[in-house]
Design a protein around this nucleic acid. Sequence first.
DNA 1: CAACATGATGACACCGTTGTCAATACGTCG
DNA 2: CGACGTATTGACAACGGTGTCATCATGTTG
Lengths: 360, 360
Amino acid sequence: MTGEEDVVDPADRNAGKEREMVRDRPTVRDVAKVAGVSFKTVSRVINGERGVRPETAERVMAAVRDLGFRRNVIAADFARGGSRNQIGLVIDDISNPFWARLTRAIEDVAVANGRQVIIASSDFEPAREHRIIESLIAQRLGGLLIVPVGRDHSYLASEMELGTAIVFIDRPQGNLSADSITFDDYGGARAAVEHLVAHGHRRIAMLAQSLTIYTMTERYRGYRDALAGADIAFEPRLEAHVDTAEGARAATLELLTTDPAPTALFCANNRMTVGAVSALGAVSALGAAQRRVALVGFDDIELADALAMPLTVVRADAAELGRTGADLLLRRMAGWDAPPQQTVLPTTLVQRGSGEISPG
Amino acid sequence: MTGEEDVVDPADRNAGKEREMVRDRPTVRDVAKVAGVSFKTVSRVINGERGVRPETAERVMAAVRDLGFRRNVIAADFARGGSRNQIGLVIDDISNPFWARLTRAIEDVAVANGRQVIIASSDFEPAREHRIIESLIAQRLGGLLIVPVGRDHSYLASEMELGTAIVFIDRPQGNLSADSITFDDYGGARAAVEHLVAHGHRRIAMLAQSLTIYTMTERYRGYRDALAGADIAFEPRLEAHVDTAEGARAATLELLTTDPAPTALFCANNRMTVGAVSALGAVSALGAAQRRVALVGFDDIELADALAMPLTVVRADAAELGRTGADLLLRRMAGWDAPPQQTVLPTTLVQRGSGEISPG
DNA sequence: CAACATGATGACACCGTTGTCAATACGTCG
DNA sequence: CGACGTATTGACAACGGTGTCATCATGTTG
């Protein structure tokens, strides 16, 4: 009995037990029978279509209540050829507060219009993004909001022709004619670094994620141009590229050991800022000397004003981006067919102290 | 021509243009025709079912590629009686970092199992929660993870009997036999307040959201019992209930004016903590006297160690809650039918400084 | 070699709505 | 009073897959 009498993959063994979808819910036909009308009339009532006598509608409603009927949305969407009421949202990572705020703003707009939001995190991986988008498209949903990672979205062209509304947010699409809404990344970054220059800094380090990401290249351009505009020679050693806040923390500690050390730091997004702030806090715990590194971050963060060193940032309003994007998407879904638009939202420099520290 | 020749609601005017779902996508039948097989065989191939000769499968795959066929998930879900691959998540507010982290953990588990996540924020409103859940149920999706707000979920009983898996997380359901996973809110809160007591505090204020929320009543119980255990008379004036971080900020400033002022503050969740920290920061900017209010918060927050006063917190691991909940839900969806379980996850006191300040 | 298990494929019903069009009843108008 | 628009209702065909069962070819076994 210890032989291999029944060699099955444990997953398969479970497969048979897979909870199957039960079918005994009341349908429009059941309701119709109780109400003494045709099922089409029931369909009219539950969809609020006009052309049903009030007393008939009342009878139907009563039957709906009695039976506990719930409209089968999947069947309805199927009959209509797609889901009007779901919009897909592809972002880098929902646990990043910036995207969380954006998501909430989008959800608010969606809910106000009777829609639901399906979210998916791409984790900066073009392959994963592609998989996610394919999967969302297969859902035949009404619209898609995408924070793109990949460089080629031409595979979406046919889908858009078939009527799927797609709006790219925060970063522009690649190889595709579509709407996009972005921030003035270049301008914001340049203003941030020029602000540091204006306070006398000439050794300004930059912390960024990989330059394969559009926003990063733009902010990097802003950084380089601000330096060049002040006749400051660019120093590769003052530039670090990491993926996570934890990485940024380590990179900051590393940067501070270069000789001569940078007197200021520009962080290209909120992950970089969190890592840098955390590192500077640790340093200041050791000796107060290096605490006086000036810091400007891109993206605002919560409690920026309660930090040991209140944080100066370039604020990019995630909620506004979300609202604007969702509004545009809904307008497209409603059939608006003007040529694709490229909208650029402004950023604001918020001075709180960390960016106004002088060198030395 | 200025007459009212055409009085229509602008919304209606647009309605006619509503982008209709286009139907000219290739279907299994189109693929079948090209590949010279029956549409059922195509269905077999795209679902990876066994029992198709490799060369036949190859012909089908080629046709799929040529035509750009994409499986219509809505039709498939419909035929099967429901969606296996979407799970619904109902939380208070996705923009709260705690829920954002939870969501990410859930998404990771979902994606690893080929599922998508639909999120919806209840905003602490039972009515909105009910609407959202009804709407998710209508989608006939495979499972539901709910952070409940309402006190009565008996309306879900019939749904669960029909096979929808439901797991309640962070807070228990009301009037319904179902799985729940919560934190040890009482124990965590009690430990936090006892920690303050141990450092000599006797005037300990509490900042919480409305006690209609389960976690708040539990943490409040912990607070009261910790006080009682130390023979400290409860003072209603040291208790404040607000909804938002902004409200918590104002309430903290208010609390500090009571005479005698509290020497310590327990914040019942991350929103309260953010508000309090922000307020204490402002106070310390004025005069350093009141800065020495001890503070322990429930829930960890980002950069807690980089604050002007590094924050002591009761950590409740949102990611663990999410993973545990999603795992359980998937097991239920797979047909596991053990009796409902009430799981309680532990919390940890993380000492960083703000909770170890002595009074006076 | 007959009987039979197995593998590959096809025919066809079915899921629960929506959309289209026909049928019927009713009121109005010439 | 008959023709005709209008309001109400019903009959029925989609929609694009999945599931069930039948069919046929191909070994396989005693």
